[in-house]
Simulated scan of single mutants.
Amino acid sequence: MIARIPIVFAFDNNLTFPACICISSLLMNAKETTFYDIFILHSKQERLDRLGLDKLEEFYKNCKITYRTVDSFFDKSFEIRGITTPAYYRLLIPDLIPEYGKVIYSDVDVIFRSDLSDIYYGTDLSDYYIAGVNSLAHLVPKYKNYFINQRHLDPTRIIYSGNLIFNSQKMREDNLISRFRELAMNKYMFQDMDILNIVCSGKICYLTPDFCLSTFVSEAMVYQREALLQLWSQEEIETAFQTGIVHYNGQKPWKGFCVNFDIWWEYYRRSPFFNEKFYFDFFYNKLNELDQLSLWKRIKILVRYFVYGRKSL
């Protein structure tokens, strides 16, 4: 029996390249019995470049891609840290994808390393609006204070918004979209993430870290493992390291070196979009950057290694 899984992405032309690699990794790891019904949300005011995206359906036969346009409602919403308007589009998923009662959403600065059928069909959202992974906001003092003092939320219960499962049916029934639209006019530090945590508070299902192995979660697994063991088991942490969805919610691997950048480049090499020149130029230029560092910057790198890096050995 075929497992049909709806999954939604939202982006503009600035991110079509990483979106192609992201979706390629999703399809590359699909079981033979999994079929992905992919929806791409984009602004109706932008002609989305579909050249690479259309190639996905030609290369992989276990998917269908549908494009849905979004109106200009969020065009004047608050933006911070370079996160643009399409970040808000996920808030409209229940209305834009009415044919499904439960839907997965993912950002495109992501690499999938396993099939999603088990978590999609195995996550019971009957009593919840949404499912996601704990963001560990309580481990960062400024974020902890922000959620307590400004958002009046428990910082130990905040989830990431980059990888989610929506109970779209329940959201539609309880008219959450109008609340989302209302709050989108406010200036929140974490934009859509704040809105989802505020509106869905008390109705959030918490998933294991393999569903969103963010850069910060990866760091915490190394330096704050005892704190993580209060949330997840050792086995759950190891599974996230080995096969979890890698989310690059900081530096992007196609732009520079970052945590788990090698995983992204490996999937790029295996994708139908691999370009030898782009691959060579990236690493050659990075080596040149290191060669051209000033003496003082080289000393700082050595100090970092001997003072901080060796502590983890």
Rank of each mutant, 00 (worst) to 15 (best):
F257A: 12
N149K: 14
R225P: 08
I23L: 04
R179Q: 15
K142Y: 12
N29V: 06
E57W: 00
F211C: 12
T123P: 03
P94N: 07
R81C: 11
P155I: 04
F39A: 00
I7W: 05
I177V: 15
F9R: 03
F280L: 03
A30T: 15
T156Y: 07
F17Y: 09
M189C: 03
G309N: 09
D115Q: 02
S106G: 07
P18N: 02
F273L: 09
S72M: 05
D154I: 05
Y120E: 03
K170S: 08
G132N: 03
G202P: 04
R47D: 13
V140Y: 09
F74L: 06
Y160Q: 13
L116G: 02
K277V: 09
T243K: 15
I40Y: 08
K203T: 00
L56G: 10
Y121V: 00
P253Q: 00
Y248K: 02
K76R: 12
Y160A: 10
I148S: 06
T33C: 08
L53H: 02
Y60L: 08
F274T: 03
D49Y: 01
G309L: 06
L231N: 12
K76W: 01
S25V: 08
L287S: 13
E219H: 11
I111D: 07
K187P: 01
Y305E: 11
E276T: 06
D115F: 04
Q251C: 02
L51A: 14
F306W: 12
I130S: 02
L287T: 12
L293Y: 06
N14S: 10
R90S: 06
M171E: 00
R47A: 10
S25E: 11
I80Y: 14
D75N: 15
S72P: 03
R50K: 15
E79K: 09
Y308R: 13
V110N: 15
F112N: 06
Y160N: 14
S135P: 05
